[in-house]
Amino acid sequence: MILLPYLATFLLLTALVGLIRVMRGPTTADRMLAAQLIGTSTVAILLVIGVATEAPALFDVALVFAILAAISLAAFVATARSGHQP
């Protein structure tokens, strides 16, 4: 059980490293898929913290993240312009 905080830290680090892809792009699709990866990692981090600190309320936060990740994705594919837009 003492392992769980380090597991969460590790997940956070992988998510933060994923930011490099958001910066580099080169296309909008690359940036968006990196954002999606970070969103999924965050859900995982919330589950780990929730079970480690015995705070089931965090599962509700994870639920909200899960549904809103889908929305920002839909908003992106429906409205983003084509081309190598910055």
């Binding site: 992988t14 490293v17 994923g18 490099i20 990866l37």
Partner: peptide, 9 residues
């Protein structure tokens, strides 16, 4: 998760 991050990079 690590594999996913390594993959996108």
């Amino acid at each position: 998760f690590l594999a996913g991050t390594v993959g996108i990079l």
